[in-house]
Simulated scan of single mutants.
Amino acid sequence: MDYQTVYQAITGRHSVRAFTSQTVDKALILELLNVAARAPSGTNCQPWQVYVATGAARDRIVTEVCALHDAARSDKAVAEQYTESYQYYPEQWISPYIDRRRENGWGLYGLLGIEKGEKDKMHEQHQRNFKLFDAPVALFFTVNKAMGIGSKMDIAMMMQNLMVAAQARGLATCPQAAWNHYHKVILPIVGASEDEELVCGMALGYADETEIVNKFITPRVKAEDFTHFVE
């Protein structure tokens, strides 16, 4: 195996925030998912379900969620009605994680020319999530509510496999936890059962290399800084 090819697929992946309108062939999506499904899972239970929304279904989700996102901005009651089914982020942030979060946010906004206090521009950029950054394919990953926290670890590994496989095939992705707030809207549209919980969404398509936002590459902490050898 050429390890450099594998390394390049992993390190070349980043969250793309502008896509072209070029469609993705269904057979290619299934190919990628079959590769991704080789991810490990506890006792090989393979707890994931994946919903691929394109065309009218994709557009309906975008339209309905964008309208709710707009409404939630000015109506606290709407915002309280649409919350995550599980807590993705901590209630109380601590360093160094909050520092990295801020660096990420202001780095992106700085590249886009959005300054602190420009709430309308921030809202518009946040809503780009719910427009899938114009990607033609939306993927929604679910697990059965009966499963434990380990199943979220399992599905996360499968998603990582998918993103790396997509990178290797010239496609781009953006994992999006932002969709989790609107699981009440999304899951009925895609036909998920009431026993399922939305874990994450993902935009899939071909990157628009002309957009400056796709020049934004987040830094990574060196392994020497988070690794502890115990001998």
Rank of each mutant, 00 (worst) to 15 (best):
N214R: 04
R100C: 04
V164Y: 13
D25W: 07
T11L: 14
R58P: 08
F229R: 04
K121R: 13
E194Q: 11
G150R: 04
A138E: 07
D99Q: 11
R220E: 10
T173R: 02
V221R: 10
K215E: 15
A53L: 03
S95E: 15
G110Q: 08
V50W: 07
N144W: 08
P90V: 09
A207F: 07
G110H: 08
A18Y: 03
F19T: 01
L68R: 03
K119E: 15
V185S: 04
L204I: 04
R17E: 05
N44R: 00
G150K: 02
Q127N: 14
A18R: 06
A192M: 02
G117V: 05
N129H: 11
A77T: 12
A72E: 13
Q127T: 09
T83C: 12
G170A: 09
Y7W: 14
N104G: 09
R38W: 15
Q125S: 06
M147C: 07
Y109Q: 08
H69C: 12
I61K: 01
E124C: 03
K152M: 15
L171F: 09
E224K: 11
A172E: 02
L108R: 01
N144S: 13
T142V: 10
S85D: 15
T142P: 06
K76Y: 12
L30W: 10
I10D: 05
Q4P: 02
S85L: 12
P47E: 03
S95V: 09
D70H: 11
H181Y: 14
Y3E: 13
V6E: 06
M158T: 02
